[in-house]
C-alpha cells in the first residue's frame, strides 16, 4: 500500500496517512478478489501518494478522509471517483469493507474495479446507493463477510513452512538435488539478471552435459 509521510513529518499534512495505511493494509492483507487491488493514502490534498489512480484511494481532509474508488493506472488509466467526503475512521473502513465485498460479489473474472465500475448499470450513483444508503439491504452481510476474512488471516508463507508435506513441491526435481541447469544469469549494473538467448554462448555448455 502506498502512503505519504502525512502529518507526522510533512508541514502540509492534516492526518496521519501512514497510520491509516497501516490500518487498511493490515485489515485487507489476506483478501482474495477477482483481480488485484491497489490502495493509497495521502495526508492532504496535495496527493503525494497518488491515491486517485488506485482502486481505493484515501485523501485526508481537515475533517477526516475523502474516499475515492475505482481508479486505475497502467495500460488503461482511469481517475478514481470521489465517493464520500469527510469520513471518520470507522465510517471509512465500513464503506471500504462494503465496497470491496460488493465488488468481489458482482465482478467478472479478472475484472479490475475500474472496468467493473464502467459496466455497472446506474454507475456511481447506484454504487453510492448500495454502499452508503444500503439500498439493497446488503450492508450488514457484506461487513460480516469481510470481518470473517479479516479474522481468519494467516501468513501463507508461515503456514507452508510449518508443514513438510506442503514443502514437498518446492523442489526443482523430485529425484535430483540439482537446480534447473538452464537458468543462467549475467551481471548488469552490479546485480544479476536473466541471460538473453544471444548471451548464452558465453556460458560453457559441456560442463553441464556431464
Amino acid at each position: 500500500m502506498k502512503s505519504c509521510v502525512g502529518s507526522t513529518w510533512c508541514r502540509y499534512g492534516v492526518q496521519d496517512s501512514v497510520g491509516m495505511s497501516l490500518v487498511l493494509e493490515n485489515r485487507y492483507k489476506g483478501l482474495r478478489s477477482p483481480h488485484k487491488l491497489k490502495f493509497a493514502v495521502s495526508g492532504c490534498t496535495r496527493e503525494c501518494a497518488e491515491a486517485q489512480s488506485k482502486d481505493v484511494g484515501v485523501i485526508a481532509t481537515d475533517k477526516g478522509w475523502n474516499l475515492y474508488v475505482c481508479g486505475n493506472g497502467g495500460m488503461r488509466p482511469r481517475h478514481a471517483e470521489l465517493f464520500a467526503t469527510d469520513l471518520d475512521d470507522k465510517t471509512l473502513i465500513r464503506y471500504i469493507d462494503r465496497f470491496l465485498m460488493f465488488y468481489i460479489r458482482t465482478a467478472d473474472k479478472l475484472q479490475r474495479t475500474s472496468v467493473w465500475r464502467e459496466s455497472l448499470e446506474g454507475g456511481l450513483e447506484y454504487l453510492k446507493e448500495v454502499i452508503i444508503d444500503d439500498s439493497l439491504g446488503l450492508a450488514e452481510e457484506l461487513e460480516a463477510q469481510m470481518q470473517h476474512v479479516v479474522d481468519t488471516y494467516e501468513c501463507e508463507w508461515a503456514n507452508a513452512l510449518q508443514d513438510p508435506e506442503k514443502l514437498k513441491r518446492f523442489r526443482t526435481f523430485v529425484n535430483d538435488e540439482r537446480g534447473d541447469p538452464d537458468i543462467h544469469f549475467v551481471k548488469e549494473r552490479g546485480q544479476r539478471r536473466p541471460a538473453r538467448a544471444s548471451e548464452l554462448h558465453l556460458i560453457p555448455v559441456t560442463e553441464e552435459a556431464l
Partner: peptide, 14 residues
C-alpha cells in the same frame, strides 16, 4: 513425490 491433480518435475537422463 507426486502431487494429486498437479505437477512435479523429475530429472531423466539429462
Amino acid at each position: 513425490d507426486l502431487v494429486a491433480n498437479s505437477g512435479v518435475v523429475a530429472w531423466f537422463d539429462g
